[in-house]
Write a protein that binds this DNA or RNA. Sequence first.
DNA 1: CTGAAAGCGCTAACAA
DNA 2: TTGTTAGCGCTTTCAG
Lengths: 329, 329
Amino acid sequence: MANIQEVAQKAGVSVATVSRVLNKPSSVTPKTRLKVENAIKDLNYEPSMLGRNLRNSESRLLLVLIPSISNPFYTEIINGIEHTAIAHNYNILLCQTDSNPQRENIYFNMIKNRLADGLISMDPTINMQKLSELAETHPTILCSEYEEGGSIPYVTIDSELAAYHAVKHLIKLGNKKVALINSDEKFLYARQRRIGYEKAMKEFGLPIREEWIYNTKELDFQHGVQAMRLLLQQKDRPSAVFAVSDTLAIGALKEINASGLRVPDDIAVVGFDKISFSNMTNPTLTTIAQPMYQMGVTAADMLINRIKGNKVESIVLDHELVIRESTMG
Amino acid sequence: MANIQEVAQKAGVSVATVSRVLNKPSSVTPKTRLKVENAIKDLNYEPSMLGRNLRNSESRLLLVLIPSISNPFYTEIINGIEHTAIAHNYNILLCQTDSNPQRENIYFNMIKNRLADGLISMDPTINMQKLSELAETHPTILCSEYEEGGSIPYVTIDSELAAYHAVKHLIKLGNKKVALINSDEKFLYARQRRIGYEKAMKEFGLPIREEWIYNTKELDFQHGVQAMRLLLQQKDRPSAVFAVSDTLAIGALKEINASGLRVPDDIAVVGFDKISFSNMTNPTLTTIAQPMYQMGVTAADMLINRIKGNKVESIVLDHELVIRESTMG
DNA sequence: CTGAAAGCGCTAACAA
DNA sequence: TTGTTAGCGCTTTCAG
């Protein structure tokens, strides 16, 4: 636990020189550098980030806000963020809000208290009002979910177009009765995906029937099961389902199987997100792949740029339809 | 971005008094306290953790090391850690090693650089040699995977006993030919689970056949598929499988289904960990539940105690066999 | 109960 | 190239 002072003393130089060896070795003669390096080794010295951070007025920490770590949707995005962060000498503070405003507040305070230099929010349930206020004074980026017409820079995909592609795929397979398992339409992406769904249906002259549209409260498996159960109870049963998240789709899959029907023969299913489990199901799941990793990289790049004081532009990335067994006859 | 100085000035008191209002309001007269509180509000003051941390020689960050965030095994443990941490005014720095020694080094350095006050490792691939050295000078706890006879305190379950229970369950169901899908036996838990498996088999006078024991390189789904494929190629096919992780078991499930056999009628399957996806499969998976959340809480408590300078004892928690469809005829 | 002052470990401006 | 020194924002000891 030696400090810079002791190193300087041992090496017979000033603390400034030690600091230079640490941060810009080229600005020191090889001879003195060696002396310092030896002293560092002898004393087992490790520079304290506490001192450095205070002096530099930075924490070199990036706060990443997600609803829950158990949602596999975020893992690849986080990987992208983390990789980029580390490459720029930052670390990430991964924080779960559990969609709990109290939790949210703790994390907002961490930013205000300079425990983190900036924030990437991926939480659709976040209090946009408060976040926008925070964003005025502290570098902030939205990832995936964003605010239409808001002032916070974001990186996302075109949800409407993606949903349109998914539904079109089902229709082209011959399905005329396509159901939609959507999440709560208080979320922007849910509204957008519904529009994409309707657009595809209309384009092919198919009717949009309210009984085939189900809005779930949450995104988890169990809600997918329940949604599918209700859909199966219809007298005029849909022949295909588009679910706006893989976990919902996997729930639907499970329920279809349980009811003795077969996927895709009786009912075809398309999910959204391409989470890793989506090819472990039986049958494997056709799904929309978001460029997760790339999204994370982009978000982190944008945030680091903001921290540096640069202006950044919002970005919309491309998606891709991944066709697997759940729609292959 | 006001600092404590400006608040003091505005309130007409010394910085010491402001600090007192922040940390021990009862040590200040209500009258001065009010003055200070008003100044804080007026200036929108937020105390800087940078200054406080340097002064207190602490970061109030706990480093949590996991192999990969995509492994659902860790999510509940992390929740336990995080909750406990927050309750004690700590935050966690969740770090993925990707089983990459280079990554590992970065994180070890973060500890040495005082970016975190202590470390909980859940990475079975970690360099124990290096970790032990680090643990001599920095608070360290092992969670789940531990070192037999090592000096680092740990919290874990009795893997041998759990495996014994799982296999005994299969045997009691009438299975005489039980296969084991184990992970690499360089890991302690893998060795222990094999011993538990053998113990149960021996106890019931059943032969232990090497062809029925498969060691995988990794724990993911795909390796489970592959292991099961080989097991199914045996002329004398096992009638039950115990996999040491749910992801492996889910892979096995998938492969059994693909080969036209039925679970549990043809082959019964038991997993390990009770990850959330284990009851989304078809059929749902019988598995060993570890008290994940409790493990996280315990690990965090232990670490915080170590940071305080207290001695802590290693703890072995109880597990539980959760019987579901994959073993229910 | 309050204030003055030292100092946590580091960096960087300035001087030599 | 190297050293001196101020100071980042805070807490805490010591006096009063």
